[in-house]
């Protein structure tokens, strides 16, 4: 039987969840044996296979138009979508931005900050995505599995990945369930 395909991506997060994944240390070899690791931000495939993957992992919340595309694309191309880490599960620290208007936040960063020179302005180029209200991925696409934590403990991640790699849906409880 073919190994299950796993792809991941990161949106409005900090990469800490992917770093916690690397914190499974040498057990990454075991995961690589059990599953076919496809596109991730730390490998060179740029997007989940168009032909589809079994497990899609998303880190980070949705805070701009680009993230929205990533979330939709991942949902479309994977059978089981996993929200990885507090940003993906709840919105996380970046969601603090929702207390302010986008205008206020952009102005502070690109015009008002004390180190920005007199020619500060809010970037507008069409090549750039547009910031939006910060949302948890579940408010953009249906999510199948939630793995909270900021970041989730490497033990939790190893458990989740090895279960998924063996075709099982992991159950998080007791020691394995933490939001901090």
């Amino acid at each position: 039987m073919a190994k299950p395909k796993i792809a991941s991506d990161w949106m409005a997060g900090c990469a800490g969840c992917h770093m916690s994944l690397l914190d499974i240390d040498e057990r990454i070899i075991k995961i690589a044996e059990l599953a076919d690791i496809r596109a991730t931000p730390i490998t060179d495939l740029k997007e989940p296979d168009e032909s589809g993957v079994d497990v899609g992992i998303l880190e980070g919340g949705v805070n701009n138009t680009s993230n929205e595309e990533v979330a939709h694309r991942m949902r479309k191309r994977c059978k089981l979508l996993v929200a990885f880490g507090d940003c993906a599960v709840f919105g996380g620290v970046p969601a603090l931005r929702n207390f302010f208007t986008l205008e206020e936040s952009l102005r502070r960063a690109y015009v008002e900050t004390e180190s920005t020179d007199a020619e500060g302005k809010i970037p507008q180029d069409p090549e750039l995505c547009k910031p939006t209200r910060v949302r948890a991925p579940q408010d953009v696409v249906p999510v199948d599995l939630f793995v909270p934590g900021c970041p989730p403990d490497p033990e939790v991640i190893y458990y989740v990945l090895s279960e998924l790699a063996q075709g099982r849906k992991p159950v998080l409880e007791g020691d394995k369930l933490h939001w901090h």
Partner: peptide, 21 residues
């Protein structure tokens, strides 16, 4: 509060907050 959620096995919030500060 967090511990109560853990006891119920909650891994997410089915209803997201509205973020009124």
């Amino acid at each position: 509060l967090q511990n109560a959620a853990y006891d119920e096995g909650m891994a997410n919030w089915p209803i997201s907050p509205t973020y009124n500060p």
